[in-house]
Amino acid sequence: MTAYLLHLAILAGIYIILTVSLNLIIGYAGQVSLGHAAFYGIGAYASALVALHWHFPFPLAALSAMLAAGVCGMALGLPTLRLKEDYLAIVTLGFGVIMDLVFLNLEITGGPDGLAGIPSPALFGLSFRPTGRYLIIVAVAVILVLLVTWRLVESYHGRALRAIRDHEITAQVMGINTPAYKVVIFTLAAALAGLAGSLYAHYITFINPESFGLHTSILILAMVVLGGMGSIVGSVAGAVILTALPELLREFRSYQDLVYGALLVGLLILRPEGLLGKGKLSLKFLQRES
């Protein structure tokens, strides 16, 4: 039982990183990404590959994962600067589908069988294979990510991002370099998702394309919306709730997606600011002035 709770805590930690990073794009910069699981997958595969082929220790593998995912995020962010809402949605979604097929078809990623035998982290001969010890690594990563994002959104740069979200042209007039901010935030969010992928790969020690498809992208989105767009505490809550909920409602497992779908629609209509979105960060900003 304890082992199981620890397992859930690790998964929740990984989802917290994913949700917070997607929230940076959606809730703070006001952009949209429906392919976030692709960066998660890129991180997982990159980390697994460098660990398997070049025997990188875990910290280096995690860094490689962040680098690979970040570079891909920048590669997607740069050309899509001009695109807005629906267009950006379909391009990021298309990117997710393409990456899913790439994982499935490349030889180096093992195709549909995926990669097995990914080494667990070890430090000075101390293995982090036991679930309890692995949780320490995840907890450290989550705390670091939360600290970085929290400092970011409370800083000048965070205010600049929110200005872009609220009114891009006004932000530009105020001298904010909007394209640079958008690319940087895309890159950062992708790198964080890559870190989550690395944590996942070295924990489960086996990865295949199934974990990184459209379904996962939408699950992360549901976590962001549930917690509240533009609220970091909300993202943490959203990730924890949606990780725990399917476990608590075991018998209703087949209704899981039904609940997620209804949750998204119902929440947007009844409480668009999410569970923990604060008034000032609520979706009121999304209401069009006319």
């Binding site: 949209v32 989105l221 039904l258 779908g261 629609v265 979706l283 209401q287």
Partner: peptide, 25 residues
């Protein structure tokens, strides 16, 4: 209606998952 386009977009994604799993059931 009248919200930022992001909101109905996400709502539509929710509706899409809902209908898909409804069909599955």
């Amino acid at each position: 209606r009248g919200f930022h386009p992001l909101v109905p977009l996400i709502s539509a994604i929710g509706a899409s998952i809902f209908l898909q799993s409804l069909a599955l059931l």
